[in-house]
């Protein structure tokens, strides 16, 4: 199966989409996911395996559990680019905001 085919197949199942969306809101254990969906833990583990094989989620051990999250490397070049873009812009903003403050320019009245 092609990479695209794997991803589409992984997301074609409504339960897997629901799991994926839950992880998009924050990293979770299998038990966390099971609490929010009417699906058994073994079934969720199976769905997570499919999502992982499609490169959509990644997991890491935490004690005896595994914590699942959306794979940031899989979010696409555009999102990664935007992440870096805003990081650089805010850093540039900070340079000016801090230098203005250091030069003694007082705060102006808030506008209404």
């Amino acid at each position: 199966m092609t990479y695209e085919g794997k991803v589409l197949a992984a997301l074609a199942d409504p339960t897997r989409r629901a799991i994926f969306e839950k992880l998009a809101k924050g990293r979770s254990s299998v038990a966390d996911v099971a609490r929010s969906l009417p699906v058994s833990q073994p079934a969720i583990s199976q769905h997570l395996k499919v999502l992982k094989e499609a490169g959509l989620v990644s997991d890491e051990p935490l004690g005896q559990r595994r914590i699942y999250s959306i794979d940031p490397a899989g979010l696409g070049p555009l999102r990664q680019w935007l992440d870096r873009f805003w990081e650089d812009q805010l850093a540039a903003f900070k340079v000016l905001a801090d230098s203005d403050e250091a030069s003694g320019a007082g705060p102006r009245k808030p506008e209404r």
Binding site: I70, R79, K94, D98
Partner: peptide
């Protein structure tokens, strides 16, 4: 399905009125 938003934050010395103005 929504990709996660890009979220960034930075703390500056200027108070909010001034930071907002500069931004």
């Amino acid at each position: 399905i929504e990709p996660a938003p890009v979220v960034k934050s930075v703390t500056v010395g200027a108070p909010p009125e001034r930071a907002f103005e500069i931004f």
